[in-house]
Structure formats: structure tokens, C-alpha cells
């Protein structure tokens, strides 16, 4: 569903990753590992189509990808249901009930999102993935501020998604218990030689 060949990505005009190749098929999960600043977010934003790759080939259907950013993207004055309903309408999905159920948000349904705790906001933000109806989830640090119970809920949600033929690629440091390959980004770190090659003759 996603295929990257010799992919390079850049952040703020500096290459961060080069020579990255991987494939992701239906039912598979890919977990990105790497220290801070290793380019996880940049790679995920590139996969989501928010920025063009520096070089290499990226074969994926942008209409299949649901991007889950580091930020929650919630509106504090809208209720939990309204926040979710909005994205459901944008993506043309009919019901938000399964999404609420998957992350145990039914009881919070009519609370304004601004009054939720950080973990509850995170759960709401993750529930959004269920109302996109898209098959490839691209997730940036999805488990930040989640407690043990919520991580288990999230892991079950991801597993269910994979079992129904979806795929997921995520940057995370904890072990979710979801079967998936781990991709360490450290070997693909861009060197200054890659920088010289991309700097259009200024060096």
C-alpha cells in the first residue's frame, strides 16, 4: 500500500534521511524507531503528502492515508461528539459510534473538548482515525500521555484495523503489543555529503 524507494526527506532545508526503502502491505504495521531529531515526523509528514520528498520515489495513494499528527487538532469549545462528527462528515463516514466505543469515549460524548485531560484529548484525537474510513494510518507518537489502559484500547483498535485489511505506520517508543516490523531510522541519517549534493551549487 506504501512503497518507498531510495527516499530522502528534508526538514527546514536540511536533508535528514536518505536512501530509505521499505514497503507496507495490507494487514501490516511498521514501527519507526530513532532518537529525537532523527526524522520520524518529517518522514510521516512526507508520507501524508504534506511535503514533497527530497528525492527518491514514494508510491502511495494519498486518498488511502489518514494522518494522525503530534498535535491533537481538537476544538476546545466543541463537544467530543461534535469534534468527531465534523471529521466524519469531512471524510464521508456515517456514524461515530464505533469510534467512540473503541476508545471508551461514550461517557464523555457531550463534554466540551477543552475540559478533557491530556490523555482524554489524545484518545479523542485517535478516535478520529476510525471516522476517516481510510486504510493506511500514518501516526506520529500516538501514545503520548496515554495511560496503560488507554494504550491497550489503542492497541486493540490498531489490531482490529490491521485484521480488516488496513495498514499502519507509526513512530512510537513503547511496545504496543501489535505485531509489526520495526524500522530503525538511524542508519538512514543524512550525511553532510547528501547535503552538499542537494544544495544547488551553493557549496
Amino acid at each position: 500500500m506504501i512503497e518507498a524507494r531510495d527516499l530522502g526527506v528534508s526538514r527546514g532545508g536540511l536533508p535528514v534521511l536518505t536512501g530509505l526503502s521499505f514497503t507496507l502491505g495490507a494487514g501490516e504495521a511498521l514501527i519507526l524507531r530513532g532518537p529525537n531529531g532523527s526524522g520520524k515526523t518529517t518522514l510521516l509528514r512526507t508520507l501524508a503528502g504534506l511535503q514533497p520528498p527530497l528525492h527518491g520515489e514514494l508510491i502511495c495513494d494519498l486518498d488511502e492515508i489518514a494522518y494522525g499528527a503530534h498535535a491533537d487538532g481538537l476544538k476546545p469549545t466543541l463537544t467530543v461528539a461534535e469534534n468527531l462528527q465534523f471529521w466524519a462528515k469531512v471524510f464521508g463516514v456515517v456514524t461515530i459510534t464505533p469510534a467512540l466505543a473503541a476508545l471508551d469515549l461514550q461517557a464523555l460524548r457531550d463534554r466540551p473538548a477543552g475540559g478533557l485531560s491530556a490523555g482524554q484529548k489524545r484518545r479523542l484525537s485517535l478516535a478520529r482515525l476510525m471516522v476517516t474510513g481510510r486504510r493506511v494510518w500514518v501516526l506520529d507518537e500516538p501514545t503520548v500521555s496515554l495511560d496503560g489502559t488507554s494504550v491497550a484500547l489503542f492497541a486493540a483498535m490498531v489490531q482490529g484495523h490491521l485484521n480488516s485489511g488496513g495498514a499502519a505506520i507509526m513512530a512510537t517508543h513503547i511496545d504496543l503489543g501489535v505485531a509489526g516490523r520495526v524500522l530503525d531510522l538511524a542508519p538512514f541519517r543524512a550525511t553532510s555529503a547528501a547535503y552538499v549534493a542537494d544544495e544547488g551549487g551553493f557549496l
Binding site: 509528514r45 501524508a48 503528502g49 504534506l50 494519498l62 486518498d63 492515508i65 489518514a66 494522518y67 499528527a69 503530534h70 498535535a71 491533537d72 487538532g73 481538537l74 476544538k75 471529521w87 469531512v90 471524510f91 464521508g92 478520529r128
Partner: peptide
């Protein structure tokens, strides 16, 4: 600021 612009940009609109 709250990141919804990124999400809107990846939405089918």
C-alpha cells in the same frame, strides 16, 4: 496552532 490545518490538508477536500 492546534494542528487541525494539517489534518484538513490531508482530508479529501
Amino acid at each position: 496552532e492546534d494542528g487541525s490545518l494539517d489534518l484538513l490538508a490531508t482530508a479529501p477536500v
